[in-house]
Design a protein around this nucleic acid. Sequence first.
DNA 1: GTCTATAAGTAGATAGAC
DNA 2: GTCTATCTACTTATAGAC
Lengths: 195, 195
Amino acid sequence: MARTAGSHSDITGPRVAQAALRLFARHGYAAVSMRQIAAEVGVQAGALYNYTPDKQSLLFDLMRGHMDELLAARATAPAPGDPVASLEGFTRFHIRFHLERPDAVFVSYMELRNLTPDNFATIEGLRRAYEDELEGILRAGVAAGVFAVADTKITTLAVIAMLTGVTTWYRTGGRLNVAQVETIYWDMVRKAVAG
Amino acid sequence: MARTAGSHSDITGPRVAQAALRLFARHGYAAVSMRQIAAEVGVQAGALYNYTPDKQSLLFDLMRGHMDELLAARATAPAPGDPVASLEGFTRFHIRFHLERPDAVFVSYMELRNLTPDNFATIEGLRRAYEDELEGILRAGVAAGVFAVADTKITTLAVIAMLTGVTTWYRTGGRLNVAQVETIYWDMVRKAVAG
DNA sequence: GTCTATAAGTAGATAGAC
DNA sequence: GTCTATCTACTTATAGAC
C-alpha cells in the first residue's frame, strides 16, 4: 500500500526522540520548546503530538530508555567470582557505557528535578538498582577481606560520582582513548578500596 | 531621615538573591519565573528590577559570588609544605565548604549552560583556578615521590568529582556528621593517589 | 501524518502613578 | 522603592482541513 503523501511515522518517531535528547542535553528541558524540537526534526509543532502525548513524556521516555539500556547491558556483562575482577569489570563497563552516550547521561543526571513525582520515583528505583550492583561487589570484597572501606554505601556513591565525572571532560579524538581512560580510573578505584 | 513608606532597599536586595538561589536550586533557572521570585520575596515582579537589570544577572551574580567565596576561603586556608597534609587539608576543606552551601553548589554546577558565553567564560576561569590548586598539590606530591598518579589533570578532576558528589546524598541530621564524612572521603583519596 | 490556525495562559521587561 | 498595568513575544496543547 502506498502511504499518504507526507506520512513518515516510522522515521519521524525516532527523529523526535533524538532531537529532544540532543536539545535537552544542550539547553535543558525547561529551556527547550516543542517548537524548537519540531524545527530540529523538520516538522511543525503540532505534528510532534502524533509521537508523544506531552513534553513530560518525551523526557521520561528518554530517561527510562537510558536506564533500561544501562541495566540490560549490565545484566549481560560477565560476573567473575573474584571481587577485584568484578570491580574492575564494573569500572570499565561504567566508563565505556557512559562515554558512548554523553547526551543521555547528561539528561538523566540533570533533569531529574523536571520529572513528575511518579516518573521521578520510577527513574530513582532504576538508579538504585544499578548502584546496588556496585554495592554488592564492595560488600563481597569486604567480606572476602580484599577490600577495606569505611562504609559500603558511601563508597558506592563516591566511586560512581568519580566515574561518571569522566563525561564532563572526555572528548572523542582527544589525547586518550577510552581504554586508556578506563585504566587510569581503574587504578584509582582499585587503590581507593584496597585492604 | 525617614524612609519612604514601603521602601526597603537594604533588606529586599539580599532577600531577592536568597529567593532566586533557593528557587533556582529547587526547580532550575529556566523553570523559575521572575514572578515566582517576587512572590517568594513578597513583592510584585516589577520591583525586582530595582535590584537586578535582568534574570541572567541574577544567576551570574549568584554563581560569581559563590566562586569568589570559594577562592577567598581557600586562600585563607593553611598551606602545609607536606603534600599529604596539603591534600588532606584540601579534601576536608572542599567537603566542608560544599556541604555548608548546598543550594549554591547545585546552582553553580547545574546552571552553567544557562549563562551567556561571556558569563560562562568568567565562571569557568574561576573554576579552573580552584582546580589548579588541587593539581598543584598532586604535582608536588608526585615530584616528592609520595603520590603515584597516572595523570595529574585527570586525577584532579576525578577527585573533585568524587568529593563534590557528597552533596547529592548528605543530609544534615543524618547518620554521619561532616567530620566523619570528611574522614571517610579522605581515606579514599589518600589511598587512591598513594605511591 | 502533517499542516495551519488558534485557544488560553505565561514569559521577561518597562512605564508611570504614588 | 513598590505598585499596577501593559507591551510583545512566546508557551503547551488542541481542532479540523487535507
